[in-house]
Design a protein around this nucleic acid. Structure first.
Lengths: 223, 223
DNA sequence: GAGTGATTTGACCAGATGGTCAAGATGCAA
DNA sequence: TTGCATCTTGACCATCTGGTCAAATCACTC
């Protein structure tokens, strides 16, 4: 595998994709996310993705030139939404509410898109062969920016002194853990994030632990 | 794949393994850990494991009857040591020191055995096909036991009220994250746990965050 | 050093899988 | 309806890979 690259059939309309192309590409990407997140890149088969998408393998390969192309398209498809929550962290907001909201968003992502979480985890654990460049540029810039936000809160005396980067890592680790290790969590507790009650409990526990960890009162007292 | 099962060549000495068997089995298990943790079960090849172990594929299959048998043996080999730290959590010790020691142990495991961490993560993310029974019995019992220890500390007023299970999950998530996502962490910070300074910083950050999260003063004041 | 069982290997097989291709089916504009 | 581009598919191929096997080699006992 080499890098993220295009995968549009060359014979598409100048202005975009045809109705059929649009529909089938989405079917394929959905099916691919399911398959890749369950089996990893190597364990996934084009045949199963095609079956899941309701078409023949040949037809799938008409839309995406190779297994790797499907994989890259799937990754690209989820990456934007996966990293979006961090962007909302707002310097001017109340630190406790901002961090709580971020943790909440990330936890809901784990609840609603566990497959995306596992796909991402898989990719990174294999050495991020496809997305390493993105991590080193876009994500690095974003993390630096938001670390500064946290750093400023600390300087303003609103947070206990902690390393902002480790705080971000901790939030990622805990929230994604509930998606990536859901089988283990279910084995140990009998529940997982698909249970709304468990989601609320988990959200409350993690938020409380982390916010108190950085010296913020949580849950807020007078509200 | 079905379940954890034996893999000893039937023609072994009644009392144990021969010198050669002992040596080769260890070579294979080491190589298998490397290969499986890098590529996952599906992506790993018996050929590469054999090459890494310095022997022919045929010879490897003389010691382990199948790829799955190697995988199970590798998992079993690391599982004991991987779950050991939790067992040391001692009801009668000082909660802050006990938790700090546990976090420290887990973080050193991530630093010293990142391959084991990734192998374990991979197995669980695929649905724990091999170790689910162990999670549901042994690990569940262990977690229940240690949750009670934490619960007792809370009852005694030594800790802020938190859900013990979520506390344990948080410790697992954060410490293992630094092993499993080391590529991402390196991409973002330029460093990983192989750097002793970074290990110390990380240990300090995570410990401080979690201990303060449960209402314990950390680092300890008067020492 | 002869003999016996343990160890090692290359040749080989069968199934799985990614990908190609030519031909056929379908949608659509004139 | 006709004609053309898009879409779809089954047949097929090359390669990879897990696993078998018979033969060769090695280690150790007597």
């Amino acid at each position: 595998m080499t890098s993220l690259s295009g995968q549009t059939p060359e014979n598409s309309r100048p202005g975009g994709l045809s109705r059929i192309q649009e529909k089938n590409r989405n079917l394929i990407l959905d099916a691919a996310l399911t398959e890749f997140s369950r089996k990893g890149f190597s364990g996934a088969t084009v045949e199963r993705i095609a079956a899941e998408a309701g078409m023949s393998k040949s037809n799938l390969l008409y839309y995406f030139s190779s297994k790797e192309a499907i994989y890259n398209a799937t990754l690209a498809h989820i990456l934007e939404v996966w990293l979006a929550p961090l962007k909302t962290l707002n310097q001017d907001g109340d630190p406790a509410k901002e961090l709580a909201a971020y943790i909440c968003q990330k936890m809901e992502m784990s609840a609603n898109f566990p497959e995306a979480s596992r796909l991402f985890a898989n990719e990174v654990m294999q050495g991020a062969p496809q997305i390493l460049p993105i991590l080193q540029t876009d994500l690095k810039r974003l993390v630096a920016e938001k670390s500064l936000v946290i750093e400023n809160w600390i300087e303003a005396g609103k947070l206990r002194r902690v390393d902002p980067v480790h705080l971000i890592f901790t939030i990622w680790a805990t929230t994604q853990h509930y998606a990536d290790f859901s089988v283990q969590i279910k084995a140990l507790t009998g529940r997982d994030l698909t249970d709304p009650d468990f989601l609320r409990e988990t959200e409350a526990s993690v938020t409380s632990l982390i916010l108190n960890g950085v010296g913020l009162a949580w849950p807020p007292e007078g509200e």
